[in-house]
Design a protein around this nucleic acid. Structure first.
Lengths: 167, 167
DNA sequence: GTTGCTGCAAAGCTTTTGCATTAGG
DNA sequence: CCTAATGCAAAAGCTTTGCAGCAAC
């Protein structure tokens, strides 16, 4: 999966704030153990450049590096890191059959970013935009729904594929 | 899956515009055949009250009615009806492993509706809201991306589950 | 009569689970 | 030590596919 990054002007600054130390702290808070497998999985994300990784890709990356880890452990670790308790990874589904994960990056305004997905080549373009400003609260009030997370997906054609389709 | 409907004031009026005649017309335009299986699948959606149906639910509904149809055919039919050519159904993924489908309902303003998904009981609440007004075009221009569809998902806790979690 | 469609069963993929073994605290 | 975590392999789902027979046009 090709990932093209696009940050809207004014929303560029981000903070990840994740490290092995932070992982250790959060694990201890919940009486989980700091295994080397969990460290290894986190490091894959810390070393990746914002890619949306699938469980199998994380597993293969570690195996290729010579680390010995089972796929089941990768799945269990990903789930743990996505839990509200740990809150380290974000799980996403782009309409493929496999799920993808990325570090939970919080922008200054507290919003996640959103995704443009090309229907032809599956390229994922990220964008950051404050259009949801105030909307969450409005929905929460009107629908009596306590929002803790959201995901916005736009489907369409990227520039390259739009050109190809014209021909 | 429990579906609670909520239509924001002012966005209530909708038009479906689907019928067997319409199906026939669209099939013929693309040299597809009007089989009774395809009619039957469409009728399940026409008779349903806005539910988000999975392939297996469509299959079971038809089997229960005494119609004889294979699950593979249901899948093939659903895929066909989701294609841009047919443009009759909308495929959605709510983070379950199975996909769900519903009639492509277009609101007066041309927007689809959006979903609130309870993290605890999986209830899906629909809401309609014009907050994306102008945003699509803005994104299209800034990102050079030709948007043809979108899906907005909010995750959180519905009123009932929020209460239970307090205890 | 052609060509596409269906049904069945098998295969494919991703993800989950049971259980004996290992390792963190 | 004690409990949680791991690895493996098997199972579980959902979805897709190959192919022979059937139905639409």
């Amino acid at each position: 999966m090709l990932i093209t990054k696009f940050w809207h002007a004014g929303d560029i600054e981000m903070r990840d704030g994740f490290s092995i130390e932070e992982l250790k702290k959060r694990l201890q808070n919940s009486r989980y153990k700091l295994t080397h497998q969990r460290q290894d999985v986190l490091e894959v994300f810390l070393n990746s450049t914002g890619e949306h990784l699938s469980a199998e890709e994380v597993h293969r990356t570690l195996r290729d590096k010579g680390y010995d880890i089972g796929l089941a452990t990768v799945y269990r670790t990903l789930e743990l890191m996505c839990s509200p308790e740990m809150n380290i990874l974000q799980k996403m589904e782009f309409g493929e059959k496999r799920a993808r994960y990325e570090l939970k990056k919080i922008e200054e305004n507290g919003h996640q970013h959103h995704h443009l997905i090309c229907k032809k080549c599956d390229k994922v373009i990220e964008f950051s935009e404050d259009m949801l400003e105030g909307l969450e609260q409005k929905i929460a009030e009107t629908c009596n729904f306590n929002i803790i997370d959201h995901q916005v997906l736009f489907y369409g054609y990227c520039q390259e594929c739009a050109k190809k389709l014209e021909n």
